[in-house]
């Protein structure tokens, strides 16, 4: 058996354990056996990756961007979920609000999720600004409910929705997965509606440093990409992790976040 790769992941849900135990089992008989270690937040995980304590980190888009920025470009993107290639932020308001499109959000009370959530805090302001909205004139309320986990728990987005339903905010910015999770406007059309959606961007990314040779990470990536939705044992893991198949990196989808981090002065050390 070759030396195990050590993969880092953040424990944002109890399902992280069965997910990674399942992935480890899948890799056990492969040419790239692995183990995993769980972190309580992405800051610690990126730190461990830089220190060589893990070989590969399962990063959010912000954690990937921060790894790139902290290492002067020595980060290597390895693989992502198919669902990561078409992430988006959805702006939701109470049904009948009359809001539609970015211009209608200008000057409104905007509820945002955790400050380190790309989809619910950083990118909403970036895309609104790109659409011509003066974000300095927005009345922003932030719900920093799960700082450190980059919005993975979704809690801060639900808190932002609560604010809209309570009439304390006009619009909430949430990730498209949360929007889908609450029914995407189909389950409760009389309560919430989407008033604008950003262009697609990319989300999570397996990240390594250039010190990990290709002969070590490539067999691992090839094995990962071979997981098959049609096989029940694989499908259980893929469903829990929220994808149909693993894909090669699409780096263009991170340009917006790199720009947003720079424009908004988001620290690269969280």
């Amino acid at each position: 058996m070759s030396e195990q790769l050590l993969i880092g992941a953040v424990a944002y849900t109890p399902n992280v354990v069965p997910i990674w135990e399942g992935i480890r089992e899948y890799f056990a008989e492969s040419p790239a056996p692995m183990d995993f270690v769980l972190f309580s937040n992405y800051g610690r995980q990126v730190e461990a990756l830089r220190a060589g304590q893990v070989d590969i980190a399962w990063n959010t888009n912000l954690a990937y961007v921060r790894t790139v920025l902290q290492t002067g470009g020595r980060a290597r993107a390895l693989a992502m979920r198919d669902t990561d290639t078409r992430f988006a932020t959805v702006f939701v308001a109470r049904t009948g609000s009359g809001l539609s499109g970015p211009d209608s959000i200008a000057g409104r009370r905007l509820a945002l999720g955790s400050a380190d959530s790309a989809q619910a805090a950083i990118l909403p302001l970036y895309y609104l600004a790109r659409a011509g909205v003066d974000v300095t004139r927005l009345e922003v309320t932030r719900f920093d409910s799960d700082i450190g986990k980059h919005g993975d728990t979704g809690r801060s987005e639900l808190d932002a929705i609560d604010a809209v339903l309570a009439g304390e905010a006009d619009v909430a910015a949430i990730g498209i997965t949360t929007w889908d999770g609450i029914g995407g406007g189909e389950l409760m059309p009389e309560a919430l509606e989407a008033v604008w959606q950003t262009e697609p961007y990319c989300h999570c990314m397996f990240t390594a440093l250039d010190t990990l040779p290709a002969e070590r990470h490539e067999p691992w990536v090839s094995t990962l990409l071979a997981m098959d939705w049609g096989r029940p044992a694989h499908r259980r893991i893929l469903e829990l992790e929220g994808l149909h198949r693993w894909v090669r990196p699409e780096l263009d989808g991170y340009a917006g976040l790199f720009a947003a981090v720079e424009e908004q002065g988001v620290t690269k050390w969280w």
Partner: peptide, 19 residues
């Protein structure tokens, strides 16, 4: 709508198979 938010919060804290 609130019940869906309750469901989302509850499910987010549950492991697969838990109730």
């Amino acid at each position: 709508m609130v019940v869906i938010l309750d469901l989302m919060r509850m499910a987010g804290a549950l492991a697969e198979g838990a109730t």
